[in-house]
Design a protein around this nucleic acid. Structure first.
Lengths: 206, 206
DNA sequence: AACGGGCTACCTACTGGTAGGTAGGGCAGA
DNA sequence: TCTGCCCTACCTACCAGTAGGTAGCCCGTT
């Protein structure tokens, strides 16, 4: 019970910090973000922030774990679907787009982490994502064996899909300039999602 | 004449600095790299480095302009090829892979720049790349109109390709972990290139 | 009275950048 | 051939500013 009240009373500021930290880290990266920036965004001083998190790295790790758990949850639900064949692949692609469109800041943090080879985060990133990767590989391979999909190397296929989907969100500011338009409006996200789905379908389904 | 000797004597250190800066910026980003890091890598002190470049930002801009000119050169040659239809698309994809495999550090800097919306660099990035983007769009659109390719939205198609190709190099450390293998060995790069070519061919060529 | 959550004031380490000095090569003129 | 000068490339020492983090006080709630 005391747990709960403690949670409620402290959660507000703590969550405000997590939200602001998420946004700052996504926007300017780990090194480019100072605790002063985050604290100022919340409306408190840096030492007050450090009252809630023991260090910058601990704060970052907490943000990153939020990210991972949300992704894992979102994708596992889609991958556990009883659908099969192309329907399931499309379902997972669309789930990924929904997930990433909902949390573009997460995508940019993940991309930065991939670039930095995970030096800032104290969690076992590959340990987290390998199971998803492996089960996705197994799915595509079995569908190819069954003749439902054209034959491709499953690992490379998934890496290609990962890059194609994530890039649209991570590089959104850059794509804005290329398109002379806002990449992340709901319509444009849907358009791109439809395109990726159609593209992968054309490549996979004979 | 005095120009030449001046160039020869100073070029060596200047180029060493540019090389080291390229590597550091790619590895740890603009904010994560200090001038001390770069100077130490070259084997000189920071003030000596600032003798060759007026500021950190100027050094970064020089590195980035090296990148842009090399990319522009490499891709324009491929895009100017007289080939047509799928042959030309494959040629450009393979040229891109060659280019990026030769200079993976450039890819990572470009990706960081895309994430940071180009705040560090004093050059007009979209102005540089828009012509390539637009002419690639025009090419695919005309080939689709001629019935050589399946119909897709050209802009989204190129963004998908851009993401699929670049990610393999920018996220190489991350992909290493996923594959339990070195992503950037010549064999693996060739394999992935072959995969992307086959994948795009399957999606585009009816 | 105890305490949670904020504050000011401070610390050390390090940042990008500057000031000023030095070693040594190239070169014009005696 | 020697001498004096300039220039490049590097150095040490320092600057102001900012980073992350700590110590300790204040104050409203319980």
């Amino acid at each position: 019970m005391s747990d709960v009240t403690e949670e409620i009373s402290s959660k507000s500021t703590r969550e405000l910090i997590l939200d602001e930290a998420l946004h700052c880290f996504a926007d300017r990266g780990y090194e480019g973000t100072s605790l002063n920036d985050i604290a100022a965004g919340v409306g408190i001083r840096r030492p007050s922030l450090l009252h809630h998190f023991p260090s910058k790295e601990a704060l970052y790790t907490d943000v990153f774990e939020m990210l991972l758990s949300e992704w894992l949850e979102g994708l596992e639900v889609a991958m556990a679907s009883p659908a099969s064949g192309w329907d399931k692949a499309e379902l997972v692609i669309r789930a990924g787009f929904d997930l990433f469109a909902r949390t573009p800041d997460y995508v940019r943090i993940m991309r930065r982490e991939a670039l930095d080879s995970g030096v800032h985060v104290g969690v076992d990133l590959s340990g987290f994502l390998r199971p998803l990767f492996d089960s996705a590989c197994a799915y595509f391979t079995s569908e190819m064996d069954a003749g439902h999909f054209r034959r491709h190397n499953s690992q490379h296929l998934i890496i290609t899909g990962y890059g194609a989907i994530l890039t649209y969100f991570s590089d959104a500011p850059f794509i804005d300039e290329l398109l002379n338009d806002q990449a992340l409006t709901p319509e444009n996200v849907r358009d791109h999602c439809d395109h990726v789905v159609a593209f992968f379908r054309a490549a996979l389904v004979a």
